[in-house]
């Protein structure tokens, strides 16, 4: 089995190096005139500590089995991947077709395909949720959710409620 602990530690090492690289845009040393560290010092040196600790975690998990805590229920990989990808697609679709249609599609997909619920439930929740969202966010809070190409469909509703 792949040692996932080592993979996570490697990702943290890479992130630490990435943060350090961006942090050096500002001074990371001691500011002699004002006193105290420069603007980049805090993120830089904290990333250094992170780098050292994650390197030790990496070394530790390479040198023995004691710390290989990461266990995965393999039968659940598929549903988790399915939900993760669906979520990613939904967020991507929000800017294109708007939040209301994207969320309708997400809920329908989730309940019907992933949850294997009846068609009645799989349609009721996806239809009711965007309606409630519209009244809560747009009518009550005046927060406009992104609508993408579906914007023209909302013009009659705007005329009625605003």
């Amino acid at each position: 089995m792949i040692n996932a602990d080592r993979i996570i530690a490697s990702l943290i090492i890479i992130s630490s190096l990435y943060f350090m690289w961006h942090a050096i845009a500002l001074p990371i040393g001691w500011n002699g005139i004002e006193g105290g560290p420069g603007g980049g010092a805090f993120p830089f040196w904290l990333s250094v500590i992170m780098l050292i600790c994650s390197a030790i975690v990496f070394w530790r998990s390479s040198s023995g089995t004691k710390f290989q805590k990461f266990s995965f229920d393999t039968s659940m990989i598929k549903p988790i991947l399915l939900v993760s990808v669906s979520l990613l697609c939904t967020v991507g679709l929000i800017s294109v077709i708007g939040a209301y249609i994207a969320i309708f599609l997400f809920l329908f997909w989730y309940l019907r395909v992933i949850g294997r619920h009846s068609i009645g439930l799989s349609l009721t929740i996806p239809v009711l949720t965007p309606i409630l969202m519209f009244f809560f966010f747009e009518v009550t809070l005046r927060i406009m959710l992104p609508k993408g190409v579906s914007e023209p469909l909302f013009l009659p509703l705007y005329a009625k409620f605003f």
Binding site: L87, L107, L111, G115, H117, I125, T129
Partner: peptide, 9 residues
Amino acid sequence: SVLCAIVLV
């Protein structure tokens, strides 16, 4: 699954 879908939204 119903709870999870609603929480994600």
